[in-house]
Design a protein around this nucleic acid. Structure first.
Ligand SMILES: [Mn+2]
Ligand SMILES: [Mn+2]
Ligand SMILES: [Zn+2]
Ligand SMILES: [Zn+2]
Lengths: 138, 138
DNA sequence: CCTGCTATTGTAAGTAGTTACAATAGCAAA
DNA sequence: TTTGCTATTGTAACTACTTACAATAGCAGG
């Protein structure tokens, strides 16, 4: 199932563990943004010995490795989801409604950054805030 | 000094307090991103009774009112700065070097969001991550 | 100036997230 | 299979941030 991911980790000098596999599985099954506490709750049912510290460390690690994506969605907490489908989010400050934006929309912007500053930007999960059409009326 | 800001708060039904004024003053004098703990340390020297809770609440409040800007700069914590000069940040994942980008660069993107989704985006302090020119070589 | 309403604060307890360290367990190589 | 190295985990203590509630203090109106 995650053979390719395991291979990648080994090449980079890291190890696959039941804890990491479980977090990946939970995020894959969920197919949506999950908060660390939700992930911890689900994980504990399957690996009762797994601790919160490990969940947080695992999420940071998988995120650094580009295997999962983190997002700040306004309430102050981070949420995570499995990587693979490159997109960004528009969130309404007033009602919280969210919209996905394909990464394609940002590519020419990133290219501008590149030619203007030399920076090669690779943020694949940016959150933008504003007002949705409904909330603009009120 | 902050007469215009006080006026704005009153119009919106809020009050100016010594604590809010002090946080604004600290951020204005600093002229750079400050973490809540740095602000708290400075504030306490001038208003010893002021607590951490008030610092956090004040930062959230001023940020909601658009008087200061918050930014996630990668270490996981938020930092704040006085509002006024609309910009975004490019940060190198490898060495932490940062570059400012004028908001102008994002305006046509926000206009695209508008016509594509109806969302009126107003994020004025977005952080993008990637590799700086030096780190791309290594 | 006073007065009264209520937004804001300090307090104190709670939740979320991080870290140092010693024990454990992947996995590469023999 | 066995072994040894060291990446990773659990533990427990710590730091960062949030919240409910009662006391305080801006400020609008008289
Ligand atoms: Mn997403
Ligand atoms: Mn900034
Ligand atoms: Zn809305
Ligand atoms: Zn760099």
């Amino acid at each position: 199932m995650f053979d390719q991911i395991i291979e990648t980790l080994h090449q980079r000098g890291f190890r696959m563990t039941p804890q990491r596999l479980l977090v990946l599985q939970i995020l894959k099954d969920a197919g949506r943004h999950l908060a660390p506490q939700e992930i911890f709750a689900q994980a504990q049912r399957i690996l009762p010995a797994m601790t919160e510290a490990t969940v947080y460390r695992t999420l940071s690690f998988l995120s650094e490795q580009g295997l999962i994506l983190a997002a700040h969605i306004g309430n102050g907490q981070l949420v995570y989801e499995i990587a693979g489908h490159d997109h960004h989010h528009l969130i309404c400050r007033a009602c919280g409604a969210t919209k996905q934006i394909d990464h394609q929309f940002l590519e020419s912007l990133y290219q501008q950054f590149r030619s203007k500053t030399g920076y090669q930007i690779d943020s694949l999960h940016v959150t933008f805030f504003g007002l949705c059409p409904d909330c603009q009326k009120n």
